[in-house]
Amino acid sequence: MTQILLVAASGLARETLASIRSSRRNSGGDDVVGFLDDDEALHGLVLDGVPVLGGVGVAARRPERLLLCAGQGRGRAALEDRLVKLGVDESRYAVHVHPSVMVGGGSRIGAGSIVLAGSVLTGDVTVGRQTVLMPNTVLTHDDVLGDHVTTAAGVTVAGRVHIGSRSYLGMQASVRQDVRVGRDAVVGMGSVVLHDVPDGQTWAGNPARQLPQNSPLTEGVRS
């Protein structure tokens, strides 16, 4: 059994905790022993039966494996960079894949990534480090997701799509085959992406088009 610390006592952390517990009921496996969060008001509290053991820096002094649970990719990237400076390397990170997930042949999932229930990686899919696939994400053949990507529930990606690091795809968004979504891009919920999305842009609609940088869709996604 692998003991895990969830870094950031966030909504994603609670979802990940529930997924790990569900996995244990089905097949045994990992155990979450604590949260780490820099909010001192949380230190010593017990959330969903799991204690908050201290700030993020505590990870460097403990032996457990880690999962970064900041909800957005930039937050996970910042946490990872901070922990590197404290001597935490890639070997410390767990990977969580719910037992209901289908992972096809030739697919690879990077260190620290979290794949929640009902997701499908059909074949030869590459998922980078610290990437989060929320429930019922579908990635089809030869897709490549960079590091710190987030797909919300129900995202569907056709074949040979490249999604850049730290990008966010909203609930029920879909992406056509052979499209590239750039780094730090945002795709709004329910959007249908038919063309390449440049780095740093926000697209939404059916078909998806670029939105202004001050669009409400970008609020909270780029943090």
Rank of each mutant, 00 (worst) to 15 (best):
V103D: 06
G105W: 10
V149I: 08
L169C: 03
T140E: 06
D30C: 04
S23K: 10
V95I: 15
G220F: 02
S23Y: 01
G154D: 14
V97W: 00
V97F: 00
G57Y: 01
R180Q: 11
G154C: 12
H141N: 14
L83F: 11
E80W: 14
R74A: 15
R14A: 02
V84C: 05
L5K: 09
L145C: 07
H162A: 12
D81Y: 10
N26S: 08
V175C: 01
K85I: 04
V132I: 04
A77E: 11
M1V: 13
S100T: 15
N136R: 15
R209A: 10
T122S: 12
S27K: 13
G11C: 10
L66Q: 03
L133C: 09
Q213A: 15
S23W: 04
A59T: 05
I163Y: 00
V157Y: 01
L169N: 01
L139V: 13
V186T: 10
D143P: 00
V175F: 01
L86D: 14
A158P: 07
R129W: 10
P216D: 09
A13R: 12
I114L: 06
D143Y: 06
Q172V: 13
R160F: 01
H98A: 14
G170F: 00
D39G: 03
S22C: 09
S167Y: 02
Q177C: 02
C69N: 10
G188S: 07
R180H: 13
T131D: 00
V187S: 00
G71E: 13
G49F: 05
G200R: 08
D30W: 04
R25F: 05
L53F: 11
N206W: 09
G44T: 11
